[in-house]
Design a protein around this nucleic acid. Structure first.
Lengths: 215, 215
DNA sequence: GTGTATATCTCGGGG
DNA sequence: CCCCGAGGTATACAC
């Protein structure tokens, strides 16, 4: 904790006038300067890899990209050191990747009779979440989001345009699947002939897989 | 600093197994749990507004949205308290807002003879950065970015579609202005008839304004 | 390394 | 309050 002035020169120029703040230096060398409010982003920071040089009343942090963070210490209020050891890391559940795996094994939850061709189907402009065939044998590109916003519709539209240039699979239609689809996104999607489906994560988890198993 | 286990239930479910970590509580009540590496994002956190209840060996943080963070304290290594007082805040220079102001007064730096109609021109789907008229009197929608990525092209395309529905100003053409325009973005933009212009921030600042002044 | 998509994004502004 | 856009976004992952 210290009364300090901070100057950053890099992707932009920024100055923090003199005030009391928390200065956090982690084992990997990264530096973060926190005020007493405003989670969780620091006022100013420098990511690792970098070099910290402690001078007289001044810390200079530089990184290989040529960015520079200068902390001028006017008054050090307190200093605490701890070595924390191994971090096992955060275990998550419920993000888009999980939703994608669940849906890839339950494509009939998106639309009755639909089967999976491939998850993360690659194209020149990025991977399509799910490529499927519907009950009539028509190819369907499925974009999956936790929150269905407008940018997901744009993304799917780009994929559809790309996929429909491939005569082997065209025509391809689009489906937009999310736990919640925003009104604006739905309007834009439907105007483009994209079918929107909202799914419930918990229901989905309880629903049996429709993938044929060999044993 | 404490040996702790953390559980978050909210927008997703997440667990942090037992380990030593830094637990930061700010004046506004927000909580952040940091490991000794990985700038600057905490492993787990809870933003204000929230309520922190300190129980026996357990802190429970809840917020009005129904999210919940439970910190089980196995061993408190140290505790430090400071009141930091007022934060004057970060002063920035060089971001898009500044670029927009500079360009709005120097529209002829985008294209010779172009004049400003309005900055932040409002539409039903959001504000257009600059609405201008070119030397031939044709309306031009200008999208400004620091880095010209593909999403800026999509954004401008939506604005153009919207603006061209207005018979009073149609036809409207688009210009994409950035300090650096990515190849993919340029290709997509030009395919849609959008003219791309790269500008230099420092040169722009030195260039005189083309806005007519009354005195 | 570049490019693309995600994030409990955070943060700020406008309706 | 939500929606939308910007960010020194950071971060993970595929090519």
């Amino acid at each position: 904790m210290a009364r300090c002035t901070v100057r950053y020169e890099g992707r932009l120029e920024a100055v923090l006038p003199e005030a009391d703040r928390l200065i956090m230096v982690k084992a990997d060398g990264c530096v973060a300067i926190h005020a007493d409010s405003g989670a969780y982003k620091p006022l100013n920071w420098m990511n690792s890899p970098n070099t910290l040089v402690e001078g007289v009343g001044e810390w200079v942090v530089t990184n290989p990209k040529g960015e520079r963070l200068v902390i001028t210490m006017h008054n050090v209020l307190s200093e605490t050191n701890h070595s924390l050891g191994m971090e096992p890391g955060l275990e998550k559940d419920g993000v888009e990747a999980q939703l994608q795996v669940l849906l890839s094994e339950r494509t009939d939850a998106i639309q009755a009779g639909m089967t999976l061709v491939r998850r993360e189907y690659p194209t020149d402009i990025g991977p399509v979440d799910l490529l499927c065939k519907d009950i009539d044998g028509v190819t369907v590109a499925v974009e999956i989001k936790r929150r269905g916003d407008i940018d997901g519709v744009e993304q799917l539209t780009r994929y559809l345009h790309e996929l429909n240039r491939d005569a082997r699979i065209a025509p391809v239609r689009g489906m937009y699947v999310a736990q919640e689809i925003k009104a604006q996104a739905r309007t834009l999607a439907e105007r483009r002939g994209i079918v929107c489906v909202e799914v419930d994560y918990d229901e989905l988890r309880d629903r049996p897989s429709n993938v044929l198993r060999l044993f």
